[in-house]
């Protein structure tokens, strides 16, 4: 910076660099200044109308009384108002009636998507695809039946089927022979199936009984799909040997569908039943 201004009479600020570069006091465009002051006024007015300034650990309330929570609640109320129309109809209807009404079933599916994600997807997968140890909901093979009312009952009351562990009752050879027949989809071809009493639960034809929740052994769909690295045959052998939910056998397979009747409202369960029914396997 030079002590003596080398450019006297010019509108410079006296700041000069490299001998001749200097800062001038030219004004910014007028419109720019107007816009600048307008935005300052905007800022001040905004601070009066809305929460903006720190007051202690809080902020000023703002004369409009606006809060984020209020806006959120208003938004929720708006959504609830739209939903109310459908929800009141659902209240007085059975799950079967909801399923039969096109508009309502569409609403039920849209609304139950979140419910399913929150309550069911952990075991049954986001699209009802099931997983090792957990049944597929998207197919038409049901232990207890795939009618809408049965599905509703399953959700609200839960299910816990029992199969006795046969490891101590049958010999390894008998179990192996039965498992092979089941893998081939033709359990009745093995005389053991009838002689050893399998038919008591799985039926004369091996197709299971919905009343008991016993599995259909002829359709190639398995309640317990093989674990990673396990062959289907080994998986069948394991089920026969250790049973399902057999309290006397520590290695028994566990298969419990919890009851959701107390956790979810009746209306939510009806919507879920419609949702599950529409996965593609409902009957």
């Amino acid at each position: 910076m030079a002590d003596n201004n080398p450019y006297p009479g010019e509108n410079n600020t006296g700041h000069v660099w490299d001998d001749n570069l200097r800062e001038l006091t030219n004004p910014p465009p007028r419109w720019w200044m107007l816009a600048f002051w307008a935005s300052v006024i905007w800022w001040a007015v905004y601070g009066v109308l809305y929460p903006m300034w720190p007051v202690g650990h809080e902020s000023n309330k703002g004369v409009m009384g606006w809060t984020q929570m209020d806006e959120y609640k208003k938004g929720v109320d708006e959504v609830e108002a739209v939903r109310a129309e459908f929800e009141t109809q659902i209240k007085g209807m059975s799950a079967a009636d909801i399923l039969a009404a096109p508009g309502l079933s569409q609403y039920a599916v849209a609304s139950a998507k979140v419910l399913f994600g929150d309550n069911c997807a952990a075991c049954h997968g986001g699209g009802g695809q099931g997983g090792p140890g957990y049944p597929v909901l998207a197919d038409d093979d049901w232990l207890y039946g795939g009618g809408i009312d049965t599905i509703q009952q399953t959700i609200s009351m839960g299910r816990k089927g029992i199969m006795t562990a046969h490891g101590k009752i049958l010999s390894d050879a008998e179990i192996g022979s039965l498992a092979k027949a089941i893998e081939a989809g033709d359990p009745t071809s093995d005389p053991n199936f009838t002689q050893k009493g399998c038919i008591a639960c799985h039926g004369m034809d091996g197709k299971g009984m919905a009343v008991l929740g016993s599995a259909n052994l002829t359709d190639g769909i398995y309640r317990f799909s093989p674990a990673e690295g396990e062959s289907l045959l080994d998986s069948i052998v394991y089920t026969i040997k250790y049973g399902v939910n057999d309290a006397t056998e520590p290695k028994s397979r566990e298969a419990v569908m919890p009851a959701f009747g107390e956790r979810l409202s009746d209306d939510d369960i009806k919507k879920l039943a419609v949702y599950v029914h529409k996965f593609g396997g409902g009957q």
Binding site: Q129, V136, A138, D139, N216, D219, G220, G281
Partner: peptide, 17 residues
């Protein structure tokens, strides 16, 4: 539909959604 990509039905058919 991605979850599941397909399902086995009890009549032995594969179903896609």
């Amino acid at each position: 539909d991605r979850q599941p990509l397909f399902v086995l039905q009890s009549d032995g058919s594969i179903q896609n959604k």
